[in-house]
Design a protein around this nucleic acid. Structure first.
Lengths: 247, 247
DNA sequence: GCTATGCTTCGGCGGCGGCCGAAGCATCAT
DNA sequence: ATGATGCTTCGGCCGCCGCCGAAGCATAGC
């Protein structure tokens, strides 16, 4: 009978750590969590930078990074005497994003960061902060350029035209596993745009000089590293192309 | 200037644990992870049951559960001299699901569980295992009863009719935050159906006796607790209603 | 009342693991 | 070659936390 088959030796040791716990443990250390959060900016960072971000000496950071690489969360790329680290996959970024969102909502602590990083920043590879929320609002409510589908959003013809005119590569956006979906914003507590479209919007606007990265405070502040600002050209482009008046 | 504002005291302590690490730490302990996995079955479990599942004495389990409740991952409901625990929200379940999926893919270790739990089981609130994968296959490939949209799946008219005929409440399924999306199967390494539709399918088929819960091995085996089996009526219903021949 | 059961709190033990400084390699610069 | 820089490995310290047994409450049943 079936039950005896389960009770027999074929079942896994119930006291085994389990893969979930192992992966969670990698994220559970404050220093490692700061490193991972920093890598959510999308760029590859050197071990030294990550050590400073995490607030530990290089020796400690090296150990942490080894474990993250070993655990498959981080990919490393040696170049000269530097070793560049980045998240291993978009899936890792997605897990960190959802886990971070849940954690932020669970922790009722008021958001301590100053307003600077709330204005506009990159979240993984797409636009977040007040600007990201305003864009989401503009594209979905009222204009109908994005219309809801079960798991996210799809673009109307008018929306495609408008977005393409701002330099966004819609074909590449469609090729992503998800075209457009919501990503909860830690600071605004409202949704902004993620998925392939979010990524293409951010890269396109950075490329054409509508957005520029702002220098952070050294590399201590995780959020500051990802800060971006709308340039005058970008402000004009958003008003004329999307009818979005970024205050 | 902006940078000085960040350098000033308004920024959070960069050495603070951070909510992400704190939440991850709650999932990082093997015993707690087993408890959380057990609660993914959807039912509320008593502290004693969870202690046995986790393989620790009640005293230890009590401590773990306190921390999970304190951390907002688990909700507790006292009734008589029992205390029933369940996951605090669907969002928690979603995070566990994605984190578990990532972990399973990262850990290349072969799946140790016997075949029993692989046949058919409930994953959170929807159908998984071989039956879940077969159903997913049937609904998407060939029939086109589910058609892909950016973030998941939508149902064709034919698909709605077919599913409604099996007792699925499509209105309730549509009301969910996600109608239908993929959930990676730990044992099969292939997608099965999650979202509102997945939930409604499982509840409907359990209600009409097409599926029945199987008794697990006491409550030691997490997967066994969630095992279900197709009844003869269910086998017939699936073949006649959906053209799905569940071997 | 008393006893049994479910659960929690308390105290103490032990180990995992994070931290650092020092030393060892590797790479780049002069 | 010689030194400087980036990074890793090694060794030792220390604290956190998971584990258990025992005792303390609460509820249910007699």
């Amino acid at each position: 009978m079936r039950v005896s088959a389960i009770a027999s030796g074929t079942m896994s040791d119930p006291t085994a750590p389990g893969p979930l716990a192992a992966t969670a443990a990698l994220m559970a250390d404050p220093a490692r969590a700061r490193m991972l959060a920093a890598m959510m900016g999308g760029e590859a960072l050197t071990a030294g930078e990550l050590a400073r971000i995490a607030g530990v000496v290089p020796a400690t950071a090296s150990g942490h990074l080894s474990r993250l690489v070993e655990g498959g969360l981080v990919a490393v790329h040696a170049q000269g005497r530097h070793r560049y680290h980045r998240l291993a996959s978009e899936e890792v970024a997605a897990v960190l994003e959802t886990l971070g969102g849940l954690s932020a909502r669970l922790a009722p602590r008021p958001w301590k960061h100053g307003d600077a990083a709330r204005e506009a920043r990159l979240c993984w590879n797409h636009l977040a902060g007040r600007l990201g929320v305003a864009l989401h609002e503009r594209l979905t409510n009222g204009t109908g350029w994005l219309t809801p589908v079960p798991g996210g959003w799809t673009a109307s013809d008018e929306g495609r035209t408008r977005l393409a005119a701002t330099g966004v590569d819609l074909d590449r956006a469609m090729a992503a596993p998800r075209f457009a979906c919501d990503c909860m914003d830690w600071s605004e507590r409202r949704a902004h745009l993620a998925g392939g479209l979010g990524r293409e919007i951010a890269t396109a606007w950075l490329d054409r000089g509508w957005l520029r990265r702002l220098p952070g405070d050294g590399d201590r502040d995780v959020l500051a590293r990802r800060r971006v600002a709308l340039t005058p050209a970008g402000r004009r482009g958003l008003r004329e192309g999307l009818g979005l008046d970024a205050a």
